[in-house]
Design a protein around this nucleic acid. Structure first.
Length: 1037
RNA sequence: GCCCGGAUGGUGAAACGGUAGACACGAGGGACUUAAAAUCCCUUGACCCUUAAAGGUCGUGCAGGUUCAAGUCCUGUUCCGGGCACCA
């Protein structure tokens, strides 16, 4: 029986579905394993071959874990709120829900084709009210909580109210707005309810506040930074202004430290963790207050991460915008300072950012007092200090900071060494933390670790500073002025936001007439009629894309629960994600925000772990690989004529044939036969104007003219004698003008890429060709003929009868004709082949271009594997005979390698191991159940369809998905002998077969006895012989 | 400028510090066939030497180092990709 994936694959997919093979439920007698893929946004373009890369890898892991006895949760769903559907709605009026539904149907069809083991009964969609009801519910919990630094967790607002009424906010150590005033209990108790509510907003974990946004009036929307290019919108080029808007925010900064520390507890790629660390941007340091000489009330506060270098601070630098600058500028310096400030004002942000070499600055004339040593140091301003960051002032330590060193050197300011480990201070700064401090007052002789706490203690004692931690992380804007998102469950009363009652959830997205902002600039929800809560206005903004994706992984555990986002029972069993697969582009968006929400849900006792995903793997992106065909230009035909057709004429007629200096001159001819007074012109039949002109030209010059159409040359491209014959006839003829009377068949000629080198580069136009009609850079002519582009084309094939294309790596995009739909791959090669091929491409984490070159190798493997189960006549033939040692060795080698490699997600090498085992077993003609059956079980995660089919043939009636992963018997891997490599000075010179238990002395003796070794020894005695048992022998001369 | 990756045959790639290039594609040669397809077998890093057998030199971006032994570890450097941008 032949292997026919197109027959067996749909059959088993149907059977799996009908028998609910992938439906999972809580099973307390089995360990759980939760494997999650980042869910896709269902875009209109459908799935391309880049998407399934991660899905296939996680599916292999899921099926593998199931075979190993785990109860595997492996769900899929859709992040179905999003901008593209809304933009389509604005253009066409189609409700985004409709578009989304269609796109989801298409995604589902494509996903189903690949044979994934998703439990579709658990599908979630973020735009489903049954889902977003709980997104809204979590929002409400955030609103009802604040972050208490003393408890180091979120606590209910009601607790905060109690404390306020007892003792004000003096003793509350909580995350709140920067400018929150201190209040006493009396003040709090004296407030009206409205005043109290407004005051509490400064503490809530989600709160409305003013924020600057990129407002584009023409598009009626807020744009992200990268949608704004050069001050105008990327789409349409409309003006964009900074607009202050009332926006909901998430107080993620409250969790900055926990988000940072949590990174150390999870097995995520280091690069993702680094990006998150950088984003959070924790700097531990100290603030130091500098008094100013002659200005008793002024005080300059700086933040430094290197307080240990304070004795090396030889000047201060303020941002030009710093509020103290006018005060500190002395009369004599005023002109300079003002000129400098004016100059800075003319410089754009870009100028300021790109300038890194030139040192600029200006001295204010004032001096600060270093509080540690009472030295008078100059106060400068410079544009490298930013007003918006920290305090807008830095202490400059030229011996420890290169930028400060540059500044000091340029302006001849003092450079003071502070550590005995600093070197080469005349050449540059040395930021070392090694050594012991010198010229550093109270920390002289100390190490870094001793100096920092000493200094901070001293600063705090003298009230001249304190230890301080800063974060770069800002609170996250949560509002979007859009329609297609979750409504915020808030109504406004008296300028105070209030939550709607929990039993009124979900707050449904209202129907509106148009998906654009209102005429008054309110979000689209402002168009909804009679959309009010108890007579009050609802919040009109919606939630951002990351709202639903910040917690969806819990919904899969209990997708249909309408009493909770997830039941306690489900959470107790499934706990958290064991393995999360997705793209690294979500490094700080989704992956940071979902960690934040999870930490919060943990604080309020709703989820069991601080981190929701133990392990994360990023799959690499798949780029497009474009193919090009080469269309012949006129120059090609001229060169062709010269090389292929005119050669015999040269031999016959010698120098009487002349070719035009440049083929494209209007007033010379392509070729001339002087003796016969005949000119030849090569051109397209479409160039009637040109033909007429040349014809008149020839007439006037008294020359006879032969016009060869490129199209007729194309018709007979492989028969140069046709054209040659024509020239011969023209030479013998007397007619003044000759051209073809027949209409040529072909209009264009395409030349195989490997032939194009014989011609000049100008002879062709490279054109994108749809990669779906190209196999391994060879154009499939049959398919090509059905494409418009090639309807009237002729193809010049290479010597092997093939038409080759060139290739280039580009982004995968429709316009480049390099988008590959997985459906096509599945239709052509089968889902199992497609799955294994994607894995065979290389390590899962590597970015790589899509290239189907090589897929035939995987197809060939599957055929061979299938063939192991059949005899020569095509009859299914598997025997129950006992397997021999060689056969078992092949099997168990494969078990070991595949098991190890799946565990470390090295799917590409797994495929290789299957190939090796199959090749080896074929050589032995092994068709024994004892070997083939375990091998088949191992193949199941990779090729589930072929595995299920052969499993039935082996006589089983239940699915192979519940078979048992074979266990390794080490005994079979042992062999009696080992082929030892023998190295001389580390270079391989010979090999020798020795028993595995050979002693070092015996091995050495055996090696030394070898003729090849003796040759290298030349009678001398080796200095040393290294013997690594089971590895190698190295003889050192 | 800073941070993080990467660099191995014609191609995708393998390789616990221990026989570099497994496995596969492509290419070349051969078998089967009336022929083609399919299938199977052999060769395939570069170079040198040789009738052959065999042998040698070089080789994992480049230059050093550690080691009996380096694609792998260390230092420096070049190029490519990604991220961030004067963040104190």
């Amino acid at each position: 029986m032949e292997y026919r994936p197109s027959e067996i694959e749909p059959k088993w997919r149907r059977w799996w579905q009908e028998n609910q093979i992938y439906k999972v439920s809580i099973q307390h007698d089995k360990p759980k394993y939760y494997i999650l893929d980042m869910f896709p946004y269902p875009s209109g373009a459908g799935l391309h071959v880049g998407h399934p890369l991660g899905y296939i890898a996680s599916d292999i892991l899921a099926r593998y874990k199931r075979l190993r006895g785990f109860n595997v949760l492996h769900p899929m769903g859709y992040d179905s709120f999003g901008l593209p559907a809304e933009q389509y709605a604005i253009q066409t009026g189609t409700h985004p829900a409709v578009t989304t539904e269609q796109n989801i149907a298409r995604y589902r069809e494509q996903l189903d084709n690949i044979g994934f083991s998703f439990d579709w009964s658990r599908e979630v969609r973020t735009s489903d009210p049954a889902f977003y009801r709980w997104t809204q519910w979590i929002f409400m919990q955030l609103f009802e909580h604040y972050y208490d630094f003393s408890a180091d967790k979120a606590l209910p607002i009601s607790h905060l109210k109690n404390v306020f009424s007892q003792s004000g906010n003096a003793d509350i150590h909580a995350a709140c707005d920067e400018d929150t005033p201190s209040i006493s209990a009396a003040t709090w108790n004296g407030m009206t309810d409205r005043e109290q509510q407004l005051f509490l907003l400064q503490y809530r974990l989600t709160y409305p506040g003013e924020a600057y946004v990129n407002w584009c009036a023409a598009l009626g929307s807020v744009l992200s930074n990268d949608e704004v290019k050069d001050g105008v919108s990327e789409r349409g080029g409309h003006p964009v202004t900074r607009k202050l808007m009332n926006q909901w925010n998430m107080r993620i900064t409250a969790y900055a430290n926990r988000l940072l520390e949590g990174l150390d507890t999870i097995d995520w790629p280091e690069s993702i963790k680094e990006q998150q660390r950088y984003w959070i941007g924790k700097s531990v340091g100290a603030s130091v207050k500098f008094a100013v000489d002659n200005h008793p009330t002024a005080c300059i506060e700086v933040f430094t991460t290197r307080v240990d270098t304070v004795f090396g601070a030889t000047f201060l630098v303020l941002a030009p915008e710093h509020e103290l600058v006018p005060t500190l500028t002395t009369a004599s310096q005023r002109n300079d300072i003002e000129a400098y400030i004016r100059w800075v004002a003319t410089r754009s942000e870009i100028d300021r950012m790109s300038e890194t070499k030139k040192v600029t600055g200006s001295f204010t004339g004032s001096y600060a007092i270093n509080p540690l040593n009472n030295e008078r140091i100059q106060i400068w301003i410079a544009d490298y200090v930013l007003a918006g960051y920290g305090t807008g002032a830095v202490m400059a330590v030229p011996s420890g900071d290169q930028r400060d060193w540059n500044f000091a050197t340029f302006f001849h300011l003092p450079i003071v060494a502070i550590s005995d480990a600093q070197t080469d201070l005349d050449k540059g700064a040395d930021p070392t933390k090694e050594g012991r401090y010198i010229q550093s007052g109270l920390i002289n002789g100390m190490t870094y670790a001793e100096a920092v706490p000493t200094l901070i203690h001293w600063l705090e004692e003298n009230k001249l500073g304190k230890g301080k931690t800063q974060y770069k992380l800002r609170n996250a804007v949560f509002s979007r002025q859009r329609y297609w998102g979750e409504p915020v469950p808030v109504f406004w009363k008296d300028g105070v936001p209030n939550l709607i009652a929990e039993q009124d959830l979900p707050l449904l997205l209202p129907e509106i007439d148009k998906y654009q902002p209102t005429e008054t600039g309110e979000p689209p929800l402002g168009r909804a009629e009679n959309w009010q809560y108890q007579g009050c206005e609802y919040e009109l903004s919606t939630m951002p894309g990351w709202a639903g994706s910040s917690w969806y992984f819990y919904r899969y555990m209990d997708p249909n629960n309408d009493g909770a986002f997830c039941s306690k029972e489900a959470l107790d069993y499934w706990q958290d994600v064991d393995f999360y697969m997705g793209g690294s582009e979500h490094a700080v968006g989704h992956l940071l925000y979902s960690r934040f929400w999870n930490q919060f849900l943990y604080d309020i006792g709703k989820v069991p772990h601080r981190e929701f995903a133990k392990k994360l793997v990023n799959q690499g992106m798949i780029g497009g690989r474009s193919n090009f065909v080469f269309r012949a230009k006129e120059q090609f035909f001229e060169e062709y004529l010269l090389k292929k057709v005119l050669v015999p004429f040269f031999q016959e007629l010698g120098p009487n044939v002349v070719s035009g200096a440049s083929f494209e001159e209007d007033f010379t001819y392509d070729f001339t036969f002087e003796h016969a007074n005949l000119a030849i012109e090569v051109t397209s039949i479409k160039q009637q104007d040109k033909i007429n002109r040349i014809r008149q030209n020839a007439l006037a010059a008294g020359k006879r003219l032969l016009v060869l159409f490129t199209e007729e040359l194309t018709d007979h491209i492989n028969e140069p004698e046709v054209a040659a014959e024509k020239i011969r006839r023209a030479l013998a003829d007397t007619a003044a003008y000759t051209a073809n009377e027949q209409e040529p068949v072909c209009s264009q000629l395409y030349v195989s890429h490997n032939l194009t080198q014989k011609y000049s580069a100008d002879a062709f136009t490279p054109l994108h060709v749809d990669v779906n009609i190209v196999e391994a850079d060879v154009l499939n002519l049959e398919k090509a003929r059905t494409v418009n582009q090639f309807e009237q084309a002729n193809f010049k094939l290479d010597a092997n009868g093939k038409f080759t294309c060139s290739h280039e790596l580009e982004k995968m995009s429709k316009s480049k004709y390099n988008v590959v739909n997985p459906d096509i791959m599945v239709a052509e090669h089968g889902a199992d082949c497609f799955r294994m091929f994607e894995m065979f491409l290389g390590p899962i984490t590597d970015a790589k271009p899509w290239n189907t070159q090589g897929i035939s190798g995987v197809g060939g493997f599957l055929k061979k594997f299938w063939g192991l189960f059949f005899d020569k006549t095509g009859q299914f033939s598997v025997t129950n005979e006992e397997a021999n040692r060689d056969e078992y060795r092949i099997l168990h080698t494969c078990i070991k390698k595949v098991t190890d490699d799946i565990e470390r997600m090295s799917m590409n090498t797994c495929v290789s191991h299957f190939m090796i085992a199959t090749n080896d077993l074929r050589k032995l003609n092994c068709n024994k159940r004892a070997v083939l059956e375990p091998l088949l079980v191992m193949l199941t995660p990779f090729g589930p369809h072929i595995a299920e089919e052969l499993w039935r043939m082996l006589g089983y009636h239940k699915t192979i998905c519940d078979a048992t992963w074979p266990s390794l018997v080490e005994e079979y891997l042992k062999s009696d002998t080992k082929e030892y490599p023998i190295q001389i000075n580390g270079k391989l010179r010979a090999t020798i077969s020795l028993p595995t238990d050979t002693s070092a002395a015996d091995a050495e003796a055996a090696a030394m006895a070898l003729e090849q070794v003796q040759k290298w020894l030349e009678g001398s005695t080796p200095k040393k012989v290294v013997f690594v048992p089971g590895r190698m022998i190295n003889i050192v001369l």
